[in-house]
């Protein structure tokens, strides 16, 4: 991967591995699904706006799950909404990732104790890759979460499956 970051000083030939190139392509252009549920959605909008720009990371919002790579679950997941989230996750094409943003999506948040209609964590219905804590997380925290997701994608090996 280091080779891709170096300047092309010795002609236009570059030696790398297929895994690295595929992972680099995938992580540099993570299209997020526009899926804001509650308060964290406002911070997600602020992260996408001009002050804390997400476009410089290659991420912008698509409305349809079929065109998205990452689903940022921003906000409280209720029991009524959980089946719809599962449907949306199933509609995303692989490779797909889930970033759980905020306390409510991580574990139920401030509504954990007496919330009879709150799902205590979105990982009870879909698999989550990165958890971003906060209530709501600052835009910098969400960007850190996305960068951690990119780290995770960078280490993925698609051609040679690892046993661990």
């Amino acid at each position: 991967m280091g080779l891709l970051n170096q300047r092309f000083e010795n002609g236009n030939v570059l030696l790398t591995s297929v895994d690295d190139v595929l992972a680099w392509g995938r992580l540099s252009s993570l299209w997020a699904m526009q899926f804001g549920l509650a308060c964290c959605a406002i911070e997600m909008m602020a992260t996408g706006a001009s002050h804390y720009d997400l476009d410089r990371f290659g991420t912008f919002f698509r409305s349809s799950p079929r065109q998205a790579d990452v689903m940022i679950v921003a906000g409280t997941v209720t029991l009524k909404m959980a089946s719809r989230i599962k449907t949306l996750y199933d509609q995303m094409a692989e490779p797909r990732y889930v970033l759980s943003m905020g306390s409510c999506a991580n574990c139920g948040g401030p509504y954990w104790e007496h919330g009879y209609h709150v799902l205590k964590g979105v990982d009870r219905v879909i698999p989550v890759d990165v958890y971003v804590p906060g209530c709501p997380p600052r835009p910098e925290a969400l960007m850190e979460g996305l960068l951690k997701l990119k780290e995770k994608i960078r280490k993925e090996r698609l051609i040679l499956k690892q046993t661990a």
């Binding site: 029991l79 009524k80 959980a82 089946s83 009879y116 205590k120 009870r124």
Partner: peptide, 27 residues
């Protein structure tokens, strides 16, 4: 609440159900 929910939640003697459609409700 969802249309197939049982009970009326804000009553003082309401018991939270254990599962709803396969999802665990309490923490």
């Amino acid at each position: 609440m969802p249309d197939d929910w049982d009970g009326h939640p804000l009553r003082k003697d309401y018991q939270v159900p254990e599962f709803y459609n396969g999802m665990k409700v309490p923490y």
